[in-house]
Every structure is written in structure tokens, then in C-alpha cells.
């Protein structure tokens, strides 16, 4: 029997040969719970977050941003806790990406305040001159289309009723259009007048970005909060008053902190740091904890990227300029 003269038999054999690896590495894992384990700490996307995710997909953000932190030391230092399979149980499609032209986003949720994102999407180069991120101004100028939201949620089986979906949309609109919304000023700046009271595509995208990694962070924060507070209270700055260190701290501040706190530290997206009274406590330990571990409402944690020495130098610099005016 000569397979090379019988095209149909040849094709059948080729399919069988192709299917061996397919079945072992792709088909069987689909039915192994360990491939995509469910996790009780991960919550499905809300209706707004889901719409934001669809905008992320539509604009092809995954072409430049990954969403998996690998279990490598420097990667965990840069982005945070490495990605767990449970986190992706609701991700259809997955958005792990394949290229980091921009940074990984799997832990970006809660890292910055909403205002940071509104401003960054409007004009990334105004915040980071060397960035090659495109501006996504048009997202703030487009009303969020919610005509398919209920249908989408139903297709994904998130278990919300159409009323739930409507309530989530209404609640979210109420939140971002409220007078006391912390990022109101910048949202109003980038959103055209007619849409100020409405949900825009950018609102949804920011909601989605703020969700990324949030569930994992909540678990981690609950576990480590009391210990960290205790340890921080006892700390003292080894560089206090050291002129060289203050100079270095000034440089570090300009590079890392001025985007949000302003070049003069008088506050922009983040609070004014030149006052003696600080938002989260005034001792060296409090300041160290604020910078190292981050604070709710948009202060990122810097311990793993900057390290403790540099943080103390920044504090030494801040001590030198506080209460001057």
C-alpha cells in the first residue's frame, strides 16, 4: 500500500499525525480543572468594566501591553505579585499579550488615581516626555454605547440580570459625575461639555484598568497590613540632614514623583508635600510606609522599584522643603 499515491488516505494520515500533539497539549488540558482553576477571591467584571475591556480589545491595547507578571524577581519588583491562573477565570478572550512596548498592566488597578489615567490617555507625553504611547483623546469624546451590555453579560454568564446591569451602569455614572468625585477636575477637562453628565468610553476604560489585579491586591493587603504598620512606626531616617543625600533625593523626586506631586512638590494629582501636616501621618515611619507600601486612592508602592535607601533620600529631601512657605 503506497500512501504517496492516494491523496485521501494521505490526508487522513496527516490529520491523525497532526492531532496527536493537539489532543495531548491542547484538547485534554481543556478538561483538566488545573488548567484554568476557579478562584473564590476573583470577582467577574462589572458591566462597566466589561465595556471598558471591550474598548481595550477594540483599540488593540494588547498589541503593546501584556497582562501577565512572570514569577521572576525583577518582574515582581517592577509590577507586583506574579499572575495566578485563577485571576483569568472570567477572561474571554485572555489578554496576556506577547510584546511589552509599554509596561505590563496586570497589576495596574489601584496603582494610580483615576485622574492619572484621564490625564495620561489625553496626553501621555505631557506626563512622560519620552513615552511613545499614543494619545487616546477620542475615547473621552465618545459616549459609551451600552445597547449590547446586557446581552454581553448574558453571553459571558456573569449572572447579572438586565436590572443589575442597568443599576451598575447608573451607579457608575453617578460616581464619576458626582460633585465629590476625586478626579472630577481632570475628567471635566478632557470630557466635552455635552458628555460631562454621561458615561464616556474613557470612563469605562479607566474602570477596567482600575480593576486589573485589584482582587489579588485586596487579598495581599489584608494579609500584611497590621505587620507593616507596626514595623513602620519604629523607623528613623538614616540620611536626615545629609546634604549629599538631600541632593540625590531631589533628583529622585524629579524623576519619579513630580509627575503626580508637581515639580515643586506642591501637589497635582497627588497631595501637596510641602506642608508639615501630611495626609497619612508625619513621622519618618509614616512617610516611609506611604512611599514604600503605597496608600489607597492612588499612591503606588515604591519599595521594590526604588529600594529603601532611595526612599529615605527622598524623605530627607522632603523634610528639607516642608513648612518653608
Amino acid at each position: 500500500m503506497d500512501i504517496y499515491s492516494k491523496p485521501i488516505a494521505f490526508a487522513v494520515l496527516a490529520v491523525v499525525v497532526i492531532l496527536v500533539g493537539t489532543v495531548v497539549t491542547m484538547f485534554i488540558p481543556l478538561f483538566m480543572p488545573a488548567t484554568q482553576p476557579p478562584g473564590d477571591f476573583v470577582k467577574p467584571y462589572t458591566a462597566v468594566e466589561l465595556e471598558g475591556r471591550d474598548i481595550y480589545i477594540r483599540e488593540g491595547c494588547n498589541n503593546c501591553h501584556t497582562q501577565t507578571v512572570r514569577p521572576l524577581r525583577t518582574e515582581v519588583a517592577r509590577y507586583g505579585e506574579y499572575s495566578k491562573p485563577q485571576e483569568f477565570a472570567y477572561d474571554r478572550p485572555f489578554l496576556w499579550g506577547s510584546r511589552r512596548t509599554g509596561p505590563d498592566l496586570n497589576r495596574v488597578g489601584g496603582k494610580y488615581p483615576d485622574s492619572w489615567h484621564y490625564q495620561h490617555m489625553d496626553n501621555p507625553q505631557a506626563m512622560f516626555q519620552q513615552s511613545n504611547m499614543p494619545a487616546y483623546r477620542w475615547l473621552a469624546q465618545a459616549r459609551l454605547d451600552t445597547s449590547y451590555t446586557a446581552k454581553k453579560v448574558a453571553a459571558l454568564g456573569y449572572g447579572y440580570s438586565p436590572q443589575d446591569v442597568q443599576r451598575q451602569l447608573d451607579d457608575f455614572r453617578a460616581r464619576v459625575t458626582a460633585v465629590d468625585y476625586p478626579s472630577k477636575e481632570i475628567r471635566n477637562k478632557v470630557t466635552p461639555g455635552a458628555l460631562k453628565g454621561d458615561l464616556t468610553e474613557l470612563d469605562a476604560l479607566v474602570a477596567y484598568l482600575q480593576k486589573l489585579g485589584k482582587d489579588v491586591k485586596t487579598v495581599a493587603a489584608e494579609a500584611s497590613a497590621p505587620k507593616a504598620a507596626e514595623a513602620a512606626a519604629a523607623l528613623k531616617n538614616p540620611y536626615e540632614g545629609n546634604r549629599e543625600s538631600i541632593e540625590e533625593g531631589k533628583k529622585l523626586f524629579a524623576e519619579n514623583c513630580s509627575v503626580c506631586h508637581g515639580a515643586d512638590a506642591k501637589g497635582k494629582l497627588g497631595p501637596d508635600l510641602t506642608t508639615k501636616k501630611k495626609k497619612f501621618g508625619d513621622t519618618d515611619g509614616d512617610l516611609y510606609a506611604s512611599i514604600a507600601k503605597g496608600r489607597p486612592g492612588g499612591m503606588p508602592d515604591w519599595e521594590k522599584t526604588l529600594g529603601s535607601e532611595k526612599i529615605w533620600k527622598v524623605i530627607a529631601y522632603l523634610r528639607g522643603i516642608e513648612g518653608k512657605q
Binding site: 488540558p29 491562573p85 483569568f88 477572561d91 474571554r92 478572550p93 496576556w96
Partner: peptide
């Protein structure tokens, strides 16, 4: 939406 979720979708 993809029929598969998360790690399965990636695989």
C-alpha cells in the same frame, strides 16, 4: 467572545 476562558484560551 471566545468560547474558552483565561489559561485555556491562551493555550
Amino acid at each position: 467572545y471566545s468560547l474558552y476562558a483565561g489559561a485555556n484560551d491562551a493555550n
